[in-house]
Design a protein around this nucleic acid. Structure first.
Lengths: 229, 229
DNA sequence: CGACTCATTGAGACCGCTCAAGAAACGTGG
DNA sequence: CCACGTTTCTTGAGCGGTCTCAATGAGTCG
């Protein structure tokens, strides 16, 4: 039971909860609820009013938004230590994104009351949350520019570099197995286009691919491609 | 001199400064510096380390980011009451955006020290800043989806609806006069494409246009078009 | 009135999307 | 373990949207 207390949770180092006081952390730990989510299951849907935030202990979730033409755009992937739904809780609005597990997950649901009381009383914590959100906002700005100014091929190269951040096995394959459709939803393109580019990259020796197993082979060339050289 | 004090400044109602205490506001007011910026002049450049934030008193500034292919992408327009550079100050990083005036402006430069001390001591203020940033982040997510999933025509329709928010004159023309190039940088397209779509919209009676003067004519149809009908 | 910048229009090439069909991988129940 | 349906992946062909280049017209300011 010890390791199920937030006070002892390692992932806390990666998020804003580390700025909480012992007492606040205790309150969070007492009210939280650990959940196991199977791959493919939904954590919440766009438009839901969230009663709290989700802290990822293990696994990866895609955060996506449905567009008018019926396609999902994956805005970001949340992994160990990241907190989902904080935007919604802070702004007291419904979520603008849906969250679906892309691998089996373990998440802690933290009711918003314990978050809110800390937000009102502990400026260090609030500031830490603010810093994380500032970081997210910067990344979002970068994505906007990429989406509007780069070709699908460049964005695909970036996507591979992005996926690499979630870890690779001894052969260099990504730990995270995304379907071609999910990849195309990260890149913002048609699935067929994504597939064609993947096989092109493979032929050119930029990446390794065998079935669903994908990985980066020539990081430097991918980076150059993403920058437009 | 009275109206140059932040305590009496009306635009404060629109931003996070309204959550400051009287004392904090006094400190801000004593350290701030009012600047007049001519249309076309730059407020700061991508990569600059900002010594503080800019609060817009009057006029409009474009916040843009240069992409590798040499084109600016306008991420947002900041107008009366909006604070620029807070992301950079909060995260203690260089700015990720450049700011250039698109009309004559009056802005107040507020050194970061007075902001930072309030951020550490006044949770109400910090929370208010956080809420604003949460709102910005939501808008950024929406833009990402629009950029990746909508056609240039749809985005152009959205751009017109967006520009309308900055006010119109008695004839329905936008108060804000953007060049075709700036418009295309909002939409994220080539200038020629933007021009062609503008004349198409005019022909169809969706907008009014005479030279640089632009305006919305049929808001409903524009909205439908933006949504993909 | 010249030297700008900005707006407009045309034509051609290319990129990326869609539709359609087949191959491979996966899961499930017999 | 196999047969089956279902999903996912792959490839081809064609169309349409968007970009680029280039030339012309219009507006602005000394």
């Amino acid at each position: 039971m010890e390791e199920s207390r937030c006070e002892n949770c390692i992932v806390r180092q990666f998020n804003a909860l580390r700025a909480m006081t012992k007492e606040e952390l205790k309150a969070v730990s007492d009210s939280k609820e650990t959940r196991t989510i199977r791959k493919g299951e939904s954590l919440f849907e766009e438009g839901d009013k969230l009663g709290g935030v989700m802290c990822v202990r293990n696994g990866v979730s895609k955060l996506s938004k449905l567009s008018a033409n019926g396609k999902d755009q994956i805005v970001k992937l949340a992994t160990k230590g990241q907190v989902m739904g904080q935007r919604s809780v802070v702004a007291e609005e419904a979520t603008n994104l849906s969250a679906v597990a892309v691998s089996d997950m373990e998440v802690c649901f933290i009711p918003k009351d314990s978050i809110n009381s800390a937000l009102h009383k502990n400026p260090d914590f609030t500031l830490e949350v603010l810093r994380h959100m500032a970081h997210d906002l910067r990344e979002a700005d970068d994505v906007i520019v990429n989406m509007s100014q780069k070709t699908v091929k460049q964005r695909m190269a970036e996507a591979f570099l992005y996926l690499q951040r979630f870890g690779v096995d001894e052969d260099g394959y990504f730990n995270l197995r995304l379907s071609r459709e999910d990849i195309s939803n990260v890149v913002g393109t048609a699935t067929e286009s994504a597939i064609r580019i993947i096989s092109e990259f493979k032929k050119k020796g930029l990446i390794i691919a065998s079935g669903k197993r994908l990985g980066v082979k020539d990081e430097k060339k991918l980076r150059d491609l993403a920058e437009g050289f």
